[in-house]
């Protein structure tokens, strides 16, 4: 009985880690598409750097997850060899780089959540997760500052940039609520003092987001209709193509080392 409980806990912890790391994985992949194509050299460097940070975080999480699984699977197996329905990132991070306004809006809407989340994860009873969170916070604080600045710059820049940024915020708003949905793994980990209760982050999130939007002279979307599904592996049509690229080498040349 004791063993069974331990086994279940391990499985929940594994799932919980994937729930965190898949967001960084998919967002990092999206940003990686832009390298060499940014509007300025400085933004190009910054976006590549954020992607780099996110993949670094993914490695820490997946190495830990692989250790918990303890069956020989590696960080790369976890990152690149799951089926589409097994990825549990939120829908927000898989949205495409429609234009620079969308890229920055997506980043900002995720960063505000990500920073708040990590600030709580830092207090986790799981020392590995706490240590990873501590390291990631420093990076994500910079991401959040960078994307918030661009929301203000584009919102309060020219008429054209304002219209583009407003459209991006309006379109992506529908994916924000999912950030605060609890999964079964979440609940199990919260009760163990390991996980973060994301439902408690919601009010502060919208307060902060709204403040930045107001400074940026943008309208806060009024829509009350939200999309969900990512955390259960039901994604938008965009994810499949992203995974096709992400997984290409591992699928084409199975069981090889690189």
């Amino acid at each position: 009985m004791q063993l069974q409980v331990q086994f279940n806990m391990k499985q929940e912890l594994y799932k919980y880690i994937l729930g965190i790391a898949d967001n960084s994985l998919i967002l990092g992949q999206r940003l990686g598409e832009l390298t060499g194509h940014g509007p300025t050299l400085e933004t190009d460097i910054a976006c590549t750097n954020i992607s780099l940070d996110l993949f670094g975080q993914v490695r820490s999480y997946f190495q830990y997850a692989a250790k918990i699984a303890g069956d020989g699977r590696t960080e790369d197996n976890i990152a690149m060899l799951r089926k589409e329905r097994e990825y549990v990132n939120v829908l927000l991070v898989e949205q495409p780089n429609t234009n620079f306004a969308y890229t920055m809006a997506r980043q900002f809407l995720f960063d505000v959540y990500h920073l708040a989340f990590l600030s709580e994860l830092e207090k986790s009873k799981d020392l590995t997760l706490s240590a990873i969170a501590k390291k990631c916070i420093k990076e994500v604080r910079y991401h959040e500052r960078f994307s918030s600045d661009w929301i203000k710059r584009l919102g309060d820049g020219t008429e054209e940039s304002k219209a583009k940024m407003q459209e991006a915020i309006n379109d992506l708003w529908t994916y924000t609520d999912e950030l605060f949905h609890q999964t079964e793994a979440d609940k199990a980990m919260v009760s163990e003092g390991i996980g973060v209760d994301v439902t408690k982050l919601k009010d502060a999130y919208y307060k902060q987001v709204n403040e930045v939007l107001e400074i940026a002279t943008l309208k806060i979307p009024e829509s009350k209709y939200f999309q969900k599904g990512g955390k259960k592996g039901i994604h938008t049509e965009h994810l499949g193509y992203l995974l096709a690229e992400l997984q290409y080498m591992q699928r084409t040349y199975p069981n090889m080392e690189w």
């Binding site: 992949q29 598409e33 790369d76 992400l246 080498m249």
Partner: peptide
């Protein structure tokens, strides 16, 4: 970048 074969190589 998007098709690097492993996370280590991608980074």
């Amino acid at each position: 970048i998007t098709r690097a074969p492993s996370l280590r190589r991608k980074v």
